[in-house]
Design a binder for these strands. Structure first.
Lengths: 338, 338
DNA sequence: ATGAAAGCGCTAACAT
DNA sequence: ATGTTAGCGCTTTCAT
């Protein structure tokens, strides 16, 4: 027994397929009486119109592509997963198919895009985190509606970002409020826009307090857990030890904390730590990491709204999610001056 | 400028659409000469046939649905993500669209299935972790090819599982080999098949050594981090303290370790811990958790193979992934008898 | 080996 | 308000 078609329903209702189509799509121009009859038959037979034929005739795939860039870094996965939850939740309102691709997809063929985009099988695409400009150029050329999440690209796509300057300011300010003056700095400068935001926020907070930057304590080339660990080793080997360390990401903080513990020092008694992101794991490290929450689920939710707007031809502005939410846990000690 | 169609290519090559279709799909019955001509035009124009029309005529969606059950438990997410990576990686060979749905999808309508399955828009479905029998019954009724990952369902779908009996045995054996005799047990009995496997492996290892189970140290109703914490509290309040704790999941272990630390005890000096799963976070807790690795990426890879086999009508057996891989880290102390 | 033509299930213009 | 009909872009049967 194969599935019912719109023709079957039409026959059963004694009307034409057009009428059934109108009823299904909630269009005007059907008398209340026939509408009701058709609706009854549709619901009693559990009829669902074949999506493939709609795709063909409407020239719409009902797919939204979500592309993530595969890295070997498991921390990114945490970041992704929360965004994805937001995406899926919001999509329940829209009913698209959320199709995942890994950007390394494309390494196989000559193009830069995942297969689904290459074959024009997505109505829109959402990019998670950093994307190459090459990829974005391809998207532009093909005129595929796109939005960027937490990207630091210079391209002009609607994007949803955090304000890392505010986040860094809030974090540093907290350290200062807790009595810290001697604050080390660990960041990546791999993404210039990210770095400049973070540094701006950090130095603004420090400047307000009349504090200063100690070159021995400035590490700007961390890139992953390991290099953050190394950075911390270097900081600890400097003549004076900072009372607190500001880290541009929780991932850096967690690795640097490990370094401090390996040196036999106590957190937060000997050194305090603060991060940015509030990745899931931060709650579970010892001590739990004080950090600035970047609301990744909200990023997903908003991204979904933006892409649907774009697909429907409505305007879609850039959005910046609140980035000043301090999550106080156990990694920052209050210094009492007596 | 709209996209090229097979007709355009046919015209350019001076042949009929049929021939182009044959060439694209690698079918016999085209002279080498025309085949070559068509191939050249196809590749020079970057022609990719419209997937929607193939979907319609072939009655195939080219979608594989991956359904995850949304829980509030972030640990599950780690588990998912590794599986998903395996799925996506393997899918590069097949080229399906991997479409994600959250099972709570269905709460909106009267059915139990995600929309994509309800409307017959997936060629197959992969279920991650536990699924209700109600859902599986619906799948059966609709004759949708399905495979189960790490499910403890009694239904007869091809499934890819870990052997938690072997895992528990390996873990407990390691504790014993490290000199432990007094071993506490924390597990969930929520999924009977999971529980019986775990208990069987645990007691087998203990029995071989002539050890015994202390009722005070048996907790079988942990269900999440919190309850595992509580279970550990109870164990610590018993007259004698175990030297080691076996935990059926890393998540239980991590929470129970927190409890032990909160009691001012040291791990592994005072109490040793072992878990099962090797979730990402286990590497980062303090001390890093010794555990049994369940290869989740492999589970994803294999699941992809199985579902494609099923879709193509080939046989698809059950697969059990190796479950005896001990990952030694810092949470188990060797007891020296002097 | 190649081409003509029907048809997959729907939508939407166009009649009535 | 309702029906007829022509496609959407492919695959596939059937002629040639």
């Amino acid at each position: 027994m194969s599935r019912l078609t719109i023709k079957d329903i039409a026959k059963m209702a004694g009307v034409s397929p057009t009428v059934v189509s109108f009823v299904i799509n909630g269009k005007e121009g059907v008398s209340p009486k026939t509408r009701k009859k058709v609706e009854e038959i549709v619901s009693s037979t559990n009829f669902i119109p074949n999506l493939s034929s709609r795709r063909l005739v409407l020239n719409k795939s009902f797919n939204i592509s979500v592309v993530i860039k595969s890295t070997s870094n498991p921390f990114n996965d945490f970041f992704y997963f929360e965004i994805i939850q937001g995406l899926m939740e919001k999509n329940k309102e829209y009913g698209y198919n959320i199709v995942f691709s890994d950007l390394s997809d494309s390494s196989s063929n000559s193009s830069f895009l995942p297969d689904i985009l290459e074959r024009g099988d997505a109505d829109g695409v959402i990019f998670l985190q950093q994307v190459d400009d090459l990829v974005l150029n391809s998207i532009n050329k093909r005129n595929i509606p796109a939005v960027l999440i937490d990207s630091h690209s210079t391209q002009t796509f609607p994007s949803i970002k955090a304000d890392y300057s505010i986040a860094a300011y809030t974090a540093t300010k907290h350290l200062i409020d807790m009595g810290h003056n001697d604050i080390a700095f660990i960041s990546s400068n791999f993404l210039p826009s990210f770095y400049s935001q973070v540094f701006a926020g950090f130095s603004k907070a420090l400047g307000e307090k009349g504090g200063f930057l100690s070159p021995d304590w400035m590490c700007i080339d961390a890139i992953d857990g390991e290099s953050a660990y190394d950075a911390m080793t270097k900081i600890l080997s400097s003549p004076r030890r900072p009372t607190a360390v500001f880290c541009a990401t929780d991932m850096f903080a967690i690795s640097a904390m490990k370094c401090v513990k390996d040196h036999g020092l106590k957190i937060p008694e000997d050194v305090s730590f603060i991060g940015i992101d509030d990745i899931i794991i931060s709650k579970y490290v010892e001590p739990a990491l004080t950090t600035i929450k970047i609301d990744k689920k909200a990023m997903g939710t908003i991204a979904m709204e933006l892409i649907v707007n774009k697909i429907e031809g409505k305007p879609a502005e850039n959005i910046i999610v609140p980035s000043d939410c301090l999550i106080r846990r156990g990694s920052v000690k209050k210094i009492e001056y007596i």
